[in-house]
Structure formats: C-alpha cells, structure tokens
Design a protein around this nucleic acid. Sequence first.
DNA 1: TCAAAAGTGTTAGTCATACACCCATGC
DNA 2: GCATGGGTGTATGACTAACACTTTTGA
Lengths: 229, 229
Amino acid sequence: MSPPAVAVSVDLVLLTLRSGQLCVLLTRRVGTDVWTLPGGFVDGDEDLDTAAARQLAARAGVTATGHLEQLRTYGGPHHGPWISGVSVAYLALLPDLPDLLATEPEPAGRACWCPVDALTSPPERVLAPDHLRIVADGVERARAKLEYTPLAAAFCEDEFTLADLRRVYEAAWGVALDPPNFRRKVLSTPGFVVPLGRRTSPPGGGRPAELYSRGPATALHPPLLRRSV
Amino acid sequence: MSPPAVAVSVDLVLLTLRSGQLCVLLTRRVGTDVWTLPGGFVDGDEDLDTAAARQLAARAGVTATGHLEQLRTYGGPHHGPWISGVSVAYLALLPDLPDLLATEPEPAGRACWCPVDALTSPPERVLAPDHLRIVADGVERARAKLEYTPLAAAFCEDEFTLADLRRVYEAAWGVALDPPNFRRKVLSTPGFVVPLGRRTSPPGGGRPAELYSRGPATALHPPLLRRSV
DNA sequence: TCAAAAGTGTTAGTCATACACCCATGC
DNA sequence: GCATGGGTGTATGACTAACACTTTTGA
C-alpha cells in the first residue's frame, strides 16, 4: 500500500526590532480580518531550507543579511483551520527594514510588522490561534538563543555599535543591562564581534561609539546569561 | 491548482545509557547491511506527536517513562535515498531497558543499541548517511539540553541516586565530574530532584546513597554548564 | 580491617555586579 | 557650558573548583 501523502507548507516567523520593540511580520488573508504568518507550499523538487529561503526572499526581499533556521514542524488534524497538512515553521532574525512594505509584493495594508507584545494579554491584533502558538515558539527560541549564540547581531545592520547590540538584548528580554558590564562581557567573548576601527556619532550628541561587525563564533563561551550581565 | 502532496514519515532517535555509553537504537533493513533509524509513515488522521509516541510504544514498549520531543524535519530531494518525502525526526531519552530486544516486534538481530561513538571515526557500523546526520543532531541536542534542563533524569529510572545522575553527564559529555561539587550543584537547583527519604546500597560496597525522583522543574536556573560543575 | 562509594568542610581563585568616574561629541 | 551617551576603573560579594576529610557500607 502506498503511504498517505499530505501537503507540506513553510511558514515564516520573521522577527525584527522596530523602535525598541520585537516585531513579527504578519499578513492578512484576503477578505478577512484574520492575520497569519507569511508562507506557502513547498515545491515538489526543492529542499525545505530552500523553500524557506525562497519565501523569505519573496516576502522581505532579503537573502544575504540576517539569520534563518528551522523552528519546528506542526501538523495533524488538531492544529487548527489555518494549518492544512503539515507546516514546517522557520525562524528568521532580521535587522530593521524600513522599506520592507514597499518592496514586498503584497498590496499595502495586507502586511505589517506587529509588536509581539500586542498579540497577547490582551491581544490588540487577532492572529490565527495555531499561528499564535508558532509565534510564541519562535519568540521563545529567539530569546533563548540570545543567551548562548551570537544571534543578537543578526538583528543589527552589518556595522553596529555595542549599544545597538545591547538594545537588542534589552528589547528581547525586557530588561535593562548595565552598559559597562555588557561591553566587557561581549568583548571578552571570543569571536562574538570584530572591531572595525571606525566610529560613528550617536544621534543627539554623545561620544562616538566604535563600530563592530559580526564575528566568526557560532556559540558563546561563556554564555551571556539573562540574569548575569 | 492543488498543492503538491508528499509522504510524511516519523523517525526516532532513541537514546539510552548502556554500560556508561550513550547508545542509539538502530534497525536493519530487510535483506541489507544498512542500518537505519526506527520509524514509519504518519497516518492521515493523527498528530505528528501522536505518531511519534505510537512509534515509540511499538519500538520500545515505552509510554510513560522517559522524554520525547520533536528534533527537526528533514526532506527534499537532496537528503539521501533513505528519506523519501519529508521526515520528521523525534528525540527520545530513555532509561536503560535491558529487555528491549525481547519486547519489540522485530526479530532478533534486526535491531540493536549501538554506541554513538561507534558510528564515527572510524565507523564500526554503517548507517545511512542521512540518518547519521539525524543521529548527530539528536546527540548534540541531548548534550546541549543536559546543561539547561533537568532532562538528564530522563536517562534514569524513576528512583535514582545522585551518582546515577552524575554518570549520565559523564557519559554524555565524556568528562569526569567532581562528585561533591556535582551534589551541591544539583541540590541547590530548585525542582531538579526531590529526595525520597530512602537509601540504596551501591554494588560492591560503599555508603548507601539517598534516592531521588525527578523534580517539577522544566529548566535549570542556574544552568549546569559543561565546564563549571 | 580494608576498599569503595557517599557525603561534608574549607579555601583560593575567579567572575559578576554595581557604581563612581572620565571622554568626546551635539547643541 | 551642559546634556548625552560611550568607555574605563574598581571594590564588594557570590560562586566555582579543587581537594582534604568523615561516614557508612560490603567483603
């Protein structure tokens, strides 16, 4: 007997930082008020990772910058009306893309960056419940990975200051970090960031900050624990 | 147009500790010398998690004890001959099951616990390359999760001593841990283990050790870092 | 009585935290 | 000058690592 075949789709949890808030990209289904994650079906001849990268390029116009990883697979008859068959969720961390809504193919008003805090307690924007679960998993994964990987830099531009990096942690964790200690911690972690030898002036005055780019490390030793900076 | 449909299977990375070695359950394909992970197709009307639990019960005769979580999903045309369509891998951590080979439905010689070190450098047992990748991902996930979750206890029986727990870490990480410091670390982590008030004698003499059971914690604060016990 | 394993005590070194202070720029 | 933010110094406290030592069993 031949095995049962089901449709496989890829859904993206696209996270970025806008105005100090962690935001996720949502799209509105045609003719409804229901917001969902961007995504689409996997082509028959492409890899899952390839399908996710294709969706990311189509939705955000991004290929090189940022980070993309598989999050989790959801599926089965109990996962709600918006997941049919099996859904492979991917998590992407991107720097702020101010011109995103202009470059994507969706008409205006059909996609938006929504602060993740606005999805819960009480929700200011209604998301399909199965997709809400996926967003929660993605946010939790991102928050956890900030601790022991250098992924915070994926939220920054290619060149960034340590204050930029610190603001990523502060926005994602909702805590205030001590700038001097944060600086020491990051610089003492091999391969986290590499200094560029140039400086940039902060808006509104203040001493120019050194510029850094992402380092070669894939894990942080020691980790930057949430309660220890 | 209707979306392309593919077959979805669930594959299990079943880890346990045997004689102080981290081992994975492998099955041999009929009429070949190729070893693969146990698994099977997902039924049309069942959840992915349900399908994984069903496979686990069928393969190891286990339902209550141990830990089962989704690992990752593999798929696409470039993932080798042994994955057709999409494969959702699950990771299970189990206590040593001495009677496993007797209770499973496979005939003798068709399934075995294989030390994970015997799969690499140089391999003593040949595993399908795509499945080797899945095993590596599962082992890495397990090793990492020992640091910041109480999952080490999933490798132990329902009642265990701190020495049992310590041997899990030592086997998984390949390091020797200082028993006094390990004891202090575990007992000072709230919810990791709960004392039962009873004791058991170690084989071959020695002071009886206190018995513990798994605690309610789902994460370790602070984590039990690999280089810090 | 000896070996083995559990458990306690202790100390030196390391690291995190908090905060005082200095530097460099815009206004 | 003064506000603002970047960056350095430093002392206190907490925690880790290493190991000496005691306890309790089997042989």
